[in-house]
């Protein structure tokens, strides 16, 4: 019942939204975001590069195409919520929020500097950020709490959270998974940035989280698969989610860590790594070429 109300609300919102971007425009934004986040990581001489590039397309689609949240409605209790559980990929979030107009992008030049609010993990000091995260395994519980409140208030908003696949080892995720199904939180969408890597190496070699799909199903969730770099697919899947009444939705987004920069793609050492001047130039050139390709 509630899902129907909220999906009507969403269609209504989308219909009147002025800035509906085409898939192509969204793809161009992703390239822009990747260039920007590399720029600020380079300036800060610190950052979680691989994971930020991995989730850029997901954040792009959430903020530009799916969620009802903007600087104008950020105090509206009915805004959609985004909680970034894998907080280390904050650089991707910062550049997307800047592009949404939550703060001037140039402020990111202070990232990780003395007294800067733009620290290396999400903080509510930064406009647009809902929760302080960075210790893994907190986002799903927080999101379940917000989704539960929405149910109590019969509010129409949705709650999105982004998890890392290495992060799934934190037991708190499974406590929250059980709770969300128990309370039938069909306003909750957890997205897994499934790049198969964590700091030490492949998830499967560190502490195998598979079969992820079956685990979440067994916990009572609706599980959906998506290519985490296919903007059109992401847009469709995330816009429709949650799709099953009475169930929270778990979106397994298959991604590549370091996506968009050839020498960073699927290479574990780029989990946190700052490119040298030379590497930076190559990366920007590669993304620049992609930008031109998308324009034509």
């Amino acid at each position: 019942m509630e899902t129907t109300i909220s999906s009507h609300f969403r269609i209504f919102f989308k219909f009147f939204s002025m800035n509906n971007l085409t898939i192509k425009e969204l793809e161009q934004k992703s390239v822009k975001y990747r260039m920007a986040l590399l720029k600020y990581i380079k300036m800060a001489n610190a950052g979680h590069t691989g994971g930020s590039l991995s989730c850029t397309d997901i954040l792009n689609v959430l903020y530009n195409d799916v969620m009802n949240v903007s600087p104008e409605n950020f105090n509206d209790p009915n805004r959609d919520r985004y909680i970034q559980s894998k907080g280390h990929s904050v650089e991707a979030l910062y550049v997307v929020l800047a592009d949404q107009g939550f703060f001037p992008e140039t402020e990111l030049e202070t990232m990780c500097r003395y007294k800067s609010p733009y620290v290396g993990h999400p903080t509510r000091k930064v406009n647009g950020i809902e929760f302080n995260t960075g210790a893994l395994g907190h986002g799903l519980s927080i999101s379940a709490g917000i989704a539960l409140a929405a149910k109590k208030d019969k509010a129409p908003y949705r709650v999105f959270t982004l998890l890392g696949d290495g992060e799934l080892a934190e037991g708190s995720n499974w406590e929250a998974a059980m709770l969300a199904a128990h309370y039938k939180l069909d306003n909750l969408v957890a997205i897994l940035d499934h790049n198969t890597l964590q700091i030490t190496g492949r998830n499967a070699e560190v502490c195998n989280p598979e079969p992820i799909n079956e685990k979440w199903k067994a916990f009572g969730w609706n599980v959906v698969h998506v290519d985490g770099h296919n903007i059109a697919e992401l847009s469709k899947v995330l816009d429709e989610a949650p799709t099953v009444p009475g169930k929270p939705t778990f979106v397994i987004a298959r991604t590549t860590k370091g996506k968009g920069v050839s020498f960073m793609e699927d290479v574990k050492k780029w989990h946190h790594g700052v490119p040298t001047n030379e590497q930076y130039e190559i990366a920007i050139n590669e993304l620049g070429a992609e930008q031109i390709r998308l324009k034509n």
Binding site: G166, A169, E170, I199, V206
Partner: peptide
């Protein structure tokens, strides 16, 4: 707990693979 790199323990793991136990990102565990 996915901390061997931060703990400078990669050489320990390489030289004494039977003496390192990895639990994944799970500090309580």
């Amino acid at each position: 707990s996915d901390s061997r790199g931060s703990g400078k323990l990669v050489p320990f793991g390489e030289q004494l693979p039977g003496q390192i136990v990895e639990v994944g990102i799970a500090e309580q565990n």
